[in-house]
């Protein structure tokens, strides 16, 4: 058994969190509330020491007054507490939305559309061995069929009847096989996390595993 009080605290809080798996109980409730408080406190410290210091204190101490502009814009958020001027907080929100949305249009068109189209094209090596299960022409065609049918599943402005119904059904098969693959993969990866925590309890705390 460890004699370090901090290790005991860590172990008991880990168990407090785990206790939720049985059911909600006072110990979990305490841990959960403490977790919220501490993590927000931690965020405040990070913001203060990193951002406030780097982007406000340093520039002002170096008399780079331009930093007052974003500060003033940020402070408009605080008008939330002034009932008559509440609408001023929409200005920083509008700035944030404008910048991100303007920028996202071409970025997404490049990353999600062009790159995916490029990836879907059959390549010339596929012709050499058409039946190769990994890189043959048949597989290449199967990928194109899968992509096209999946895209058609998302066609909203027409009733899914006739050929569109067939295509969208094939599309959802592909989607489900893909989700199964991703599910299986993640399940295996997450197991290692649990093993890590159990190892801590048994090695650091009660020294069962050496």
């Amino acid at each position: 058994m460890s004699t370090d009080i901090w290790v005991w605290i860590a172990a008991l809080l880990s168990l407090a969190i785990f206790s939720y798996l049985y059911k909600d109980n006072p110990v979990f409730r305490f841990a959960e509330h403490l977790f919220t408080g501490l993590s927000v406190g931690y965020m405040i410290v990070l913001m203060w020491n990193n951002y406030a210091y780097q982007y406000i204190v340093i520039p002002i101490s170096q008399q780079r007054w331009i930093t007052l502009i974003p500060m003033a814009l940020g402070m408009l958020y605080l008008f939330r507490f002034v009932p008559k001027l509440q609408h001023l907080m929409l200005i920083p929100i509008a700035i944030t939305l404008g910048i991100w949305n303007g920028w996202s249009i071409p970025v997404v068109i490049e990353a999600d559309l062009f790159k995916q189209m490029q990836g879907t094209m059959v390549n010339t090596t596929m012709f050499q061995n058409p039946w190769d299960p990994h890189n043959g022409l048949v597989v290449g065609l199967l990928v194109v069929v899968g992509v096209v049918c999946t895209v058609l599943y998302f066609y909203f402005s027409r009733e899914h009847r006739g050929p569109l119904k067939v295509a969208s059904s094939v599309g959802i098969w592909f989607v489900m096989i893909g989700f199964g693959a991703s599910f299986g993969y993640t399940v295996m990866a997450r197991m290692s996390l649990l093993i890590g925590r159990i190892q801590f309890l048994f090695t650091e705390w009660i020294h069962l595993i050496k």
Binding site: Q116, H134, G146, V147, T150, F174, V175, I177, G178, Y185
Partner: peptide
Amino acid sequence: EWIMMVPNMAAKRGILFGVGLGITATSL
């Protein structure tokens, strides 16, 4: 491996086309 590289990849791409258009339309 085949499932990962063929049907999974096809589905992912198909979804990403839709997502790309959805994001662009929402931004617009």
